[in-house]
Design a protein around this nucleic acid. Structure first.
Length: 599
RNA sequence: GCCUCUGUAGCUCAGUCGGAUAGAGCAUCCGCCUCCUAAGCGGAAGGUCGCAGGUUCGAAUCCUGCCUGGGGCACCA
């Protein structure tokens, strides 16, 4: 669905047009021998903060002065002289130590409105990524319980990064790695079975290390409703010779492991498998549904178990072995990851013969590379950061380029209600689920708030603010701008005022008010903002931009009437706000936030 | 102890891979609706960019050291 590859040729953005002019100037100077022709720098320009410095400023002369053996101002004069003519360039000035300040014509901005109206949904999108294949793996929470608010941040962040990359022309593959193997899943299966036994009327002491959430009861109830006593065993046989639990002075791990073993033994393979699958599928369905309602979709759900079944894990282990990176110690099989920068070696296969989670992960990442992704992005919780060096070490040991893998670490999100931090703990089961958060603040606010901060920042999520229908709430603020424009357009239609269908330039030249120029300037910034946000995996840049754009619009709204008598000016203003609405839509859409027509 | 993220206005945070006078939103104070949604707008005030050195034309940004806070250092996933 989202894999649709952008087909339409887009106009270069305002910034790209200027950069082209500057690189042409540089090429000319290089040909004339004014500057060294080797390693020409990219023609970087930036928006100025001070309008007296023009619309864009360029520091090329400062950067090249040394290599050209000229003083910066002199070199700047050469660059300016070499600049080709352009209809968007009004004037050029050399300022300060050697900055080249570029002043644009009013028409340059009027072209922007025209471009937005012509390109619509595609405005801001580009082909920069050249269809390069990128995989983005995110959330990948264990299906041992519903998603909580921490996963929510990874979901919003990962989905937005993927959408941003797609928007600038990458071929993006979104993937969820399902940890459907391993001990945690067995603990879940055992927990469900024990709750089921309780529903059958058995009384028992629930293991301290088992899963205690209500959803475990729900799955057990399903099992009991559909299958009656078919999975029931006498409680004495279940706990017979099981080592004591922690509260009874024993070891909780040994206790739960023994219970898992007993479940397998008493139920037999088929019946155990059934309980296990019921639990897994119920939770996976729940997670899938949860994410879907959060506007987060995947191209693939990749099963950890399939890696073992297909022999991929063994293959990865064998490749490491034959390359001489494995050794035996203390009965276990170790990977010498320290040879590739990790701080200690890691176990691949445990003493009991089972491969570790790490072994699966090596196989998984090897598989990602083998599937032909030129770039692999993993979005992990920051608590997993210690895991990065060993995965990269494995890729390197296998002869792959570890720099293809980019691990983005997302810091924790704390919820605040009435100024107080909401206490959460997995152990007590008191964590807040993503579903509950969505129900409380809505999808739009949740998506927006999650990506408002850069991912390495701890996020303080103010629930009251997210719910408030006021100007302080950035989501409402931005959405309100969209609704306001829609409202104006409705009234224009009611009054029978039509907009010229052609996005022609004539009337746009009437846009000369200060507020209009500010709005035009913001609209022109959208493509470069999107590109920057995507390349740096920083959705918050887009959120920030939306607030600024909405602010420019609200200011304009308060200062001027749009539906004025003069038809030419009215047409121009309507086009301007139409363009504004389009950009608001495009950006909100990329963040997974709706753009309402009314509020 | 080691690794990692963080420290910018009273609070929450931006700051475009080194640029010109460090920005925004809250909160505080002062203003703006007979007018397209006041869920809005304008203005004022607010700063030793954690601290100390270094790199250079130029540092909130890069390097080193120290301090503060979060997280991580399993034959768990």
């Amino acid at each position: 669905m989202l894999a649709r590859f952008p087909g339409r040729i887009r106009l270069p953005s305002m910034k790209a047009q200027l950069q082209l002019l500057l690189s042409q100037a540089l090429a000319k100077l290089a040909a004339d021998g004014v500057i060294p022709s080797d390693q020409l720098p990219a023609a970087n320009i930036e928006r100025t903060r001070n309008p007296q410095h023009g619309d864009f400023a360029c520091n090329l002369a400062l950067l090249l002065a040394k290599a050209a053996r000229k003083n910066p101002r002199e070199l700047a004069a050469h660059i300016v002289a070499a600049l080709p003519e352009s209809p968007i360039l009004k004037s050029v000035e050399i300022a300060g130590p050697g900055f080249i300040n570029l002043f644009l014509t009013p028409n340059a901005y009027h072209f922007v409105v025209q471009g937005i109206l012509e390109q619509g949904y595609d405005y801001g999108r580009s082909l920069l990524g050249r269809g390069k294949r990128v995989q983005v793996e995110f959330v990948s929470a264990n299906p041992t319980g519903p998603l909580h608010v921490g996963h929510g941040r990874g979901a919003a962040y990962g989905a937005t990064v993927a959408d941003l990359l797609h928007a600038i022309g990458f071929d993006v593959h979104r993937e969820y790695y399902v940890n459907d193997a391993g001990r945690q899943m067995d603990i879940l299966a055992a927990s469900v079975w024990l709750r089921y036994l309780e529903l059958c009327g058995e009384s028992l002491s629930f293991p301290s290390n088992g899963y205690r959430g209500d959803y475990v009861w729900d799955i057990a109830a399903t099992l009991h409703r559909d299958h009656g006593d078919a999975y029931r065993c006498a409680i004495d046989t279940v706990f017979f010779e099981v080592p004591p639990d922690e509260p009874a002075g024993g070891d909780k791990e040994a206790h739960i492991d023994a219970l898992i073993g007993r479940a397998r033994e008493l139920l037999g393979d088929n019946r155990y498998r059934f309980v296990f699958e019921l639990a897994l599928n119920t939770l996976l369905d729940d997670i899938r549904d949860d994410l879907e309602q959060f506007g987060v979709c995947y191209d693939e759900w990749y099963s950890e178990r399939s890696l073992t079944a297909s022999g991929a894990v063994n293959k990865a282990v064998e490749r490491l072995r034959s390359a001489g990176h494995l050794y035996q110690k203390d009965g276990a099989l170790w990977f010498r990851s320290t040879a590739f920068g990790d701080e200690k070696d890691r176990v691949i296969e445990r003493e009991n013969g089972q491969t570790t989670y790490f072994a699966s992960d090596i196989a998984y990442h090897l598989d990602k590379i083998e599937r032909g992704f030129e770039r692999v992005i993993d979005v992990w919780g920051a608590d997993h950061h210690g895991y990065v060096p060993r995965v990269k070490a494995a890729l390197q040991a296998l002869g792959d380029d570890p720099s293809k893998l980019d691990v983005l670490l997302v810091q924790f999100a704390n919820l605040y209600r009435a100024g107080e931090k909401v206490q959460m703990s997995t152990r007590s089961g008191s964590f807040v689920t993503l579903r509950a958060l969505r129900k409380e603040v809505g999808k739009d606010a949740a998506r927006f708030f999650y990506v408002m901060r850069k991912c390495e920042q701890h996020l303080d999520f103010d629930l009251d603010l997210a719910k408030s229908r006021s100007a302080e709430n950035p989501v409402y603020y931005v959405q309100y701008a969209h609704a306001r424009i829609s409202s104006v357009l409705r009234q224009a239609a009611e009054k029978g005022l039509t907009v010229e269908p052609s996005p022609g330039m004539q009337n746009l030249q009437r846009l000369t008010e200060e507020h209009e120029l500010a709005l035009l300037q913001s609209l022109s910034r959208y493509p470069e903002t999107l590109e920057y946000a995507a390349l740096n995996e920083e959705p918050h840049q887009l959120a920030q931009y939306l607030r600024e754009l909405a602010n420019d619009f609200h200011t304009y709204y308060n200062a001027h009437q749009f539906l004025v008598e003069a038809p030419g000016l009215r047409d121009a203003r309507i086009k301007l706000i139409l363009a504004t609405r389009q950009v608001l839509r495009n950006a909100l859409n990329l963040l997974g936030v709706s753009a309402p027509e009314t509020m």
